[in-house]
Simulated assay, not measured.
Amino acid sequence: MSGPDKTQGTVWGVGLGPGNPDLMSVKADRLLRQASHVAYFRKAGRTGHARRILGGILRPDVTEIAMEYPVTTEIPLSDPRYNQILSAFYEDSAARLRALSEGGQDVVVVSEGDPFFYGSFMHLYTRLKDTCPVEVVPAITGMSAAWTATGMPITWGDDVLSVLMGTSPEDALVDHITRSDALVIMKIGRNIEKIRNALRRAGRYDAAWLVEYAAMAEQTVQKLSEAGDKVTPYFSIIVVHGNGRRP
C-alpha cells in the first residue's frame, strides 16, 4: 500500500496527561489552541473527562467531534459481541477522521494520559496509520501522577515495575504480584475485591496504596487497607512501592 498523500491533513493523537491541565505538554497545549477540529471519546450522554480537561483552551469556532462508546461495561469482556461492537465503532470513528484528513483538514484527537498507554486512540491509530498522516504526542501517564501523589518513589535501584490490569484472573494477578518488586494496578472498579484477595495471597496487601483521581481536584490518597469496602471510581490506581538497592 502506498503511503499517505502529503496533501492530506494530519490526524494528531494528543495525550492530555493525568487530568490537571497544568501537566499537559507545551506541544499539546499549542496544538489544541490552534486546532479547528478536535475529537474525543466519551460515554453516551456524558461530557467526557477528556473534554472537561480542555476547559477554555479551544478556539470559539472549533468543530468538536464526540465519539461515543456504544458499550462500556454493559457486556462482559468475554462476550464475543463486545469486540464486535467496539470494532465497528472504531471503524466508523476512523472513517470520520479519514474523511476530514482527505479533505485537507487537521484533526486533534485527545486522550487522557498517554495515547499509546492503554488508550482508545491506539485503535484509531492502527486503522489510520497507513492511509493518513498520523502524529502522536506523548504525555504524563496517570500512574506517574498516582505514585507521585503518595510522596514516595515507586522504584529503587534494580526494582522491577509491573503494570497490571484488574480485569486479569486472580491467579494471574497473584503470580505477577509475587514476582514483581513495584506494582501499579489499573482498571480497578468492580474488580476491587479480586485485587484485594490477590494482594493478600501474595503478601503485599498492607503495602498497597489507593490513589483516586490522581493530580485532579478530587484526589485522595490512602492505604488500601484503610479504604473500606467502597467500590472505587474509574479514576483509581493501586500502587505498591519497590524497596530495592540504594546508596
Rank of each mutant, 00 (worst) to 15 (best):
S111E: 03
M24E: 01
T63W: 08
L32V: 06
V110Y: 08
W156S: 01
G189P: 03
M165V: 15
G113Y: 06
Q34K: 11
M152V: 06
L124V: 05
V62C: 07
Q8D: 01
R246V: 05
L77W: 13
P76M: 10
S2M: 10
W156H: 13
V11H: 10
A95K: 11
W209E: 03
A198S: 10
V136T: 13
G157W: 03
L16C: 06
D206N: 09
R196C: 06
D5T: 09
Y118S: 13
G19Q: 02
I85D: 13
V134S: 06
S111C: 14
A88F: 07
K223S: 01
I85R: 04
R42K: 11
N20M: 12
V134H: 05
L100I: 02
R33H: 13
V109R: 00
V38Q: 15
P18A: 01
D61G: 11
E64L: 15
T63K: 12
Q105W: 10
G189T: 01
T150N: 05
Y234A: 09
I192T: 10
G242L: 00
T155F: 00
L161Y: 08
H176N: 10
L16T: 11
P4H: 12
L16G: 08
S180I: 08
E170R: 14
D79A: 15
P133G: 05
L173D: 06
W209R: 07
Y69W: 11
P115Q: 08
Y90M: 11
M143S: 09
W12Q: 08
F89R: 05
E193M: 04
V239G: 02
Y125W: 12
M143Q: 13
T141E: 00
T47W: 02
L100Q: 07
I188A: 03
T178Y: 12
S93G: 13
P115G: 09
L23Q: 07
S36R: 15
A145T: 04
D114C: 06
P138M: 04
G157R: 08
W147R: 04
